[in-house]
Write a protein that binds this DNA or RNA. Structure first.
Lengths: 103, 103
DNA sequence: TCAGTAGTTCGATCGTCATCGTACTACGAT
DNA sequence: ATCGTAGTACGATGACGATCGAACTACTGA
């Protein structure tokens, strides 16, 4: 059983600037929407994105370092989970508002 | 009485990407917070910002074009107002969530 | 009319970042 | 062991954007 959680900010280290900047990018917003639909977590590579693997990794790192998502290993896979509890506690309504957008 | 509303997107033209990107910048977030505290509107130059007038104008334009705020002239002054009604209708909870951030 | 004030626009600069290909690491299966 | 797969790290590149100063516009008041 080799499961490790990748480094991420604690709840009180999350900055709203960083969160909003992370969310203000189309590809990353797509990732967040996919995670929101799968509260159990999503394997990175399973999200359809119009970018290469390295760019995908870059965006996932950005989101993780901003505190938007959490990633843990599962064999060779990396499972990402939206940090909904933390974000809702810090910015109640923010995620709901964003996810309710039509587009 | 010379009062004109500067060009801005209609409600249905507002894109969540653009809004989030606009909000994901410290100076612009400061502006939004100032506007939130003054629902009647704020004169651009009255917001204390660590940037020059031209940079301030740039940020205000960005926020206006993203649909975050509305600006109308009042003599030589420009009054900016947060488009809270539109944003709340499109992304309920988003503004509240952001503004509830401690920092 | 003329000067002053509020604000924008333009052009330049510089930093950040989205993107890619390549090389690398880690794990599982054979 | 070694091969394949999942994903990251690195370095380069190109685009975008935050910033500034200077020139410009628009309005007010003397």
């Amino acid at each position: 059983m080799t499961s490790k959680v990748l480094p991420q900010p604690e709840r009180d280290e999350i900055r709203v600037d960083a969160v909003l900047q992370a969310l203000g990018e189309p590809v990353r917003l797509t990732i967040v929407r996919a995670l929101a639909e799968n509260p159990a977590g999503v394997c990175c590579g399973d999200i359809e994105l119009p970018v290469t693997a390295s760019t995908r990794a870059h965006h996932l790192k950005t989101l993780r370092e901003a505190g938007v998502l959490s990633t843990h290993t599962d064999g060779t896979r990396r499972i990402s989970i939206l940090r909904r509890e933390d974000l809702d506690a810090l910015y109640p309504g923010l995620l709901t508002g964003i996810l309710s957008a039509k587009q």
